[in-house]
């Protein structure tokens, strides 16, 4: 069944226009108006991507970027399976990247198109090249703790005697189990594969007494209203730059990344690769940090970033080495099984 969508409509409209306006077109240089469909997460992030990537890319290449929102693996799979791929370019979180790759939903990145030597090697792989870095990290309300008395490591967070207040905990196995193990003394480089019984045992402390949250935006309100004193979170850097009273620590932070990927069967692979090479340029990546506090993956971008902003980014080497690299490749094949164990633990 062919679906009638915007793209087929555009094609239809274009051919109609061609017939009607043919005499006019013959006299002007014929150029196929190229377009590229980007799907993003919306909000301030996508507005930043528009200013830092899409608008300059359109100016430079004449390739029009059509934006949509709602990154969703299920939709991606439906497109690839029905061989009707609408999306051409996504900045996909590492964990989803791993599942998408396993499921055969991605095209390979053509590394002959750009120089990858400056890109953080941890974010470079066959089907994906890093676009931004971010951290799931200890975040607290800076008004709750006097300077110097805030919890800075996961064992601090687990120490409720010395650091009072209720804890926020992410209701998911990713990140949460890693933090539980770090708090219990597992060294950063020995985390994967996770020692699950030990992680659940360590989490037992917070089973009844923490606020278990599910939606990332929830945490801002929970911390500001002092419902919790400290929680792991990803979004504090941007808010700190806006002057909100959050404190963060990169000690034991889960550093992760999003990477540019091209869905398998994209109709505009060539233009998509052109876009990726463009967006990886140092100045482009540095520009993004003006709008949203995500770290660049190109080493040459960091010196171009406002030092105040760079200080809260996961890409800054001092921050990066304090944390550990979150493993999307561990979670891809293990998420289902471990989540079932986690749910069982929750219900017990």
């Amino acid at each position: 069944m062919t679906r009638f969508n915007r793209r087929t409509f555009t094609k239809g409209a274009a051919s109609t226009a061609f017939v009607l306006g043919a005499p006019a077109i013959w006299s002007s240089p014929a150029r196929a108006a190229q377009e590229l469909v980007f799907v993003g997460f919306g909000g301030a992030y996508q507005e930043g991507q528009t200013k830092a990537f899409f608008e300059p890319f359109e100016r430079e290449t004449g390739i029009k970027i059509i934006q949509t929102t709602g990154v969703e693996l299920a939709k991606l799979r439906a497109q690839v399976q029905s061989k009707n791929v609408e999306w051409d370019i996504i900045s996909l979180p590492d964990r989803l990247r791993s599942t998408a790759q396993q499921d055969g939903l991605l095209d390979k990145i053509d590394y002959s198109r750009f120089d990858k030597s400056d890109i953080l090697p941890e974010t470079v792989s066959e089907y994906c090249v890093g676009s931004i870095t971010l951290a799931m990290q200890i975040t607290y309300n800076a008004q709750t703790f006097a300077p110097g008395t805030a919890p800075v490591s996961w064992s601090d967070v687990w120490n409720t005697q010395k650091f009072p207040g209720r804890r926020g905990m992410y209701t998911g196995v990713t990140y949460t189990l890693e933090f539980a193990l770090l708090a219990d003394g597992v060294p950063k480089d020995k985390l994967y594969p996770l020692d699950l019984p030990r992680a659940f045992k360590s989490l037992e402390k917070f089973k009844r007494d923490a606020v278990w949250w599910t939606q990332f935006p929830q945490v801002e309100q929970m911390l500001l209203s002092k419902e919790v004193s400290v929680s792991p979170w990803t979004r504090a850097p941007a808010l700190i730059l806006e002057g909100k009273p959050f404190g963060i620590s990169f000690d034991g932070a889960a550093i992760t990344y999003e990477g540019w990927v091209i869905p398998k069967g994209s109709k505009n692979y060539d233009a998509a690769m052109k876009f990726i090479a463009f967006a990886l340029q140092p100045q482009r990546q540095a520009d993004l940090t003006k709008y949203i506090a995500f770290g660049p993956t190109n080493r040459k971008a960091l010196p171009l970033v406002d030092p105040k902003v760079a200080a809260v980014l996961a890409s800054k080497p001092e921050n990066f080495k304090q944390g550990f690299l979150f493993s999307g490749d561990y979670w891809g094949p293990n998420l289902t099984k471990v989540t079932e164990q986690f749910n069982e633990w929750r219900l017990k």
């Binding site: 599942t99 089973k207 989540t339």
Partner: peptide, 21 residues
Amino acid sequence: GGPREMMISSLIAFNVREVLN
């Protein structure tokens, strides 16, 4: 809800969206 308030729809959503099962 707390960690124990789990609904079947959330498990369906997890399997559709997160792990593609």
